[in-house]
């Protein structure tokens, strides 16, 4: 325990930098994932057949081992000279985030009480008004739960991104393994865990904030 503590004190600067990289990696990938997944999830509620296919594909992506996915990225992105590093890592994390975000958005919008949707239509709301005023606000807690899941998951998977040179806290683990330095490996693992716990807590608070006040507890 003491060793780890000493290691952290001695290497604060570099650990801080790795952590920042890690946050950037996960943050950027989740933001892009939301920008893709949210509209896609909403669109899928209007197209049952496509929904089936897309959710299947997202499911399959989830089952690909992360190290393999990073590996696949290398030849593909080499074409544009980004075979290793930040870009393939972000793309892989975006792919992993799609399932929880698309699925939760799709399920949440689909599960909005049909009577409420009927009332919205009957009052003369356009599709867009119905989505913005009624469906999305009522679906938001579940959508946020998906985002939260994606963030926490990506903080974990992000550690492996170090193997393709994307930086982040995975670097500590990667180097620790090759140098047989248990302290380094543990430090990296603990830092990632703490990051995940803090992110989960903050997003939990955000999720509560975004839950409409009118919802029964």
């Amino acid at each position: 325990m003491n060793e780890i503590w000493n290691y952290i004190i001695e290497n604060q600067a570099s650990i801080g930098a790795y952590m920042l990289e890690h946050i950037q990696l996960v943050g950027l990938s989740v933001i892009i994932a939301i920008a893709i997944g949210l509209p896609l999830g909403i669109y899928l509620t209007t197209n049952e057949e496509l929904a089936e296919t897309v959710l299947q594909v997202a499911n399959v992506i989830m089952t690909v081992p992360s190290i393999a996915l990073f590996g696949i990225m290398i030849p593909i992105l080499s074409i544009i000279n980004h075979g290793i590093g930040f870009v393939p890592a972000v793309i892989a994390l975006i792919l992993y985030s799609q399932l929880p975000i698309i699925r939760n958005t799709y399920v949440a919008i689909n599960n909005v009480d049909p009577h409420i949707r009927d009332a919205a239509n009957g009052l003369g709301m356009s599709t867009m008004q119905r989505l913005l005023r009624v469906e999305i606000p009522n679906a938001l807690p579940i959508i946020m739960a998906g985002v939260r899941q994606a963030v926490v998951m990506n903080i974990g998977i992000g550690a492996i991104a170090a193997f393709i040179g994307a930086g982040g806290l995975g670097v500590l683990i990667n180097q620790g393994i090759s140098r047989s330095n248990t302290t380094m490996v543990l430090t990296g693992a603990i830092a990632i865990s703490i990051l995940a716990i803090v992110a989960d807590g903050l997003l939990g608070i955000l999720q509560k904030r975004m839950t409409p006040k009118g919802f029964q507890q």
Binding site: D118, A119, N121, L123, G124, R133, V134, G214, F215
Partner: peptide
Amino acid sequence: QIELRRNIGYVIQHNGLFPNMT
């Protein structure tokens, strides 16, 4: 269609009030 519905009041059995609104 939208104009038509705005000019006709609509009430349903399960009131269909929007839970997110006051």
